Simulated scan of single mutants.
Amino acid sequence: MLRTLSITAGLVALGLSAPASAQTTFQIGHSLSPNSHYQVGAQTFADLVAERTNGRYRIEIAPGGSLGSEREMVEGVQLGTVDMVLTSMGTVGAFVPETLVLDLPFLFNDAAHARAVIDGEIGAGLLEAVEAKGFRPLAWAENGVPGFVTRDRAIAKAEDLSGLKMRVQANELHTATFEAMGSQGVPLGFGEIYTAMQTGAIDGTYMVVPIVVTSNFWQVQSHMTMAPLFYQAAMFIMAPSAWDQLDEADRAIFVEAAREAGVATRNAVEKAEAEGLATLREHGMTIATEYDRESFDRALAPVYERFADRIDPALVEKIRQQGN
């Protein structure tokens, strides 16, 4: 956690005031590579904050999990040992159960449906739930709609997942989803996925196209099936201890910068997905777009029943209605 002020130790020792040009540096971590859509979002945020505060605040970006796994970074934000994180909501769900609704399988029709939900009343309520658990959420961002990435077979129906070891986030709902389809859910940090696929410790994962490309997963997997099992929302989250250092005007700048940066992640995901599918085909991956939705609905019905006591069925129905 950085709290770097551009004043000398001598001034502090003498009890003198910091000059008007004093600069505070906050660090934002994320788990993806420096050429990812997360980096686009983080850099957009950093640039906007620097510009709109006249350089009084500097945002240093720590990509590639250099501050720890997503779970470790989210926990660090809660504890105040990490200033900020750009993270997937699959990880946040372990800390804020109210957000698990976003991880229900096949809840959203597509990214447009999901965006309409989280940009509206439901999304605002979920931001409040995140704040109530000891975080300061700034804005929504995006990972996109992933696909099944597998070595030995394409996933056309739920039964195709039977017997496979599939990487999952440390999220009970994700694990339950894959287990309902006959898979073994293997929780792994993002940095462990490539080696686990390479060695056969797992048979596949569920990942967005841009990450499959930038992480070179095409080197160790052969198939990708584009099916909207989950929509992967993401979020800019700040440690309350860092937030408390900002005055009201600067808080507004940080929030608006994060909102614009969230839009930048969405735009980057769309562009990278279109280009990435072509790249994966060039590298020999088989890309499938057809799947048997009914087989997934049958297999996953018990998941909805299992979580009905924790995820309000009325909220689920409200989300579905927005997609009609």
Rank of each mutant, 00 (worst) to 15 (best):
L164T: 01
I155M: 02
L11M: 13
Q232H: 09
D47V: 09
G76V: 04
F190Y: 12
A301G: 00
R167C: 14
G276Q: 03
G10V: 10
R58M: 10
G68L: 13
A22F: 01
V212A: 14
A42V: 13
H174A: 15
L126K: 03
E294Q: 15
T4S: 08
T25S: 10
A9D: 15
E275D: 14
P187K: 14
V208F: 06
A111F: 13
F106T: 15
Q169I: 06
F108L: 15
V85S: 12
T44Y: 15
Q219H: 12
K157W: 08
H113F: 05
M226A: 09
F296P: 15
N54F: 04
V40S: 09
T87D: 12
Q27P: 00
A272V: 01
D160T: 01
G323S: 06
S183G: 09
L102S: 05
G144S: 15
F217G: 04
Y291A: 12
G120T: 02
G163C: 09
V40N: 09
N216A: 03
M207S: 08
L48C: 05
S183W: 08
R306P: 03
P210W: 04
I237W: 08
M238L: 12
L67C: 08
H283Y: 14
L127T: 06
E159I: 04
R58D: 03
P137I: 01
A258S: 13
M207E: 12
T150I: 04
A242G: 08
F106C: 13
N171T: 02
D119Y: 10
R259A: 08
M89C: 12
V40F: 00
E75F: 03
Y38C: 04
M84H: 07
P63T: 09
M89K: 01
A301L: 09
T150E: 03
S241M: 06
I311P: 00
F296Y: 14
A46S: 14
Y194H: 15
M285T: 04
R320E: 11
R266V: 13
S21F: 06
D47I: 03
G147E: 14
V85D: 09
G64C: 02
S69Y: 09
A233Y: 07
A196H: 12
W243N: 01
L127Y: 05
D110A: 11
H37K: 11
K271W: 06
E256F: 03
N267G: 13
A13L: 12
A264W: 10
R153K: 11
D110F: 07
F236W: 00
P302W: 02
V77C: 15
A268F: 05
V77Y: 15
G200H: 02
L246M: 15
V186I: 10
Q321S: 14
A239D: 13
A257W: 06
G163N: 04
R52C: 04
D244F: 01
M207T: 14
P19H: 14
L100I: 01
P105R: 07
I7H: 03
G93T: 10
S215M: 12
A252T: 11
G29H: 06
Q245Y: 01
P187Y: 15
T286E: 10
V303I: 13
T24N: 08
S295F: 11
G182V: 09
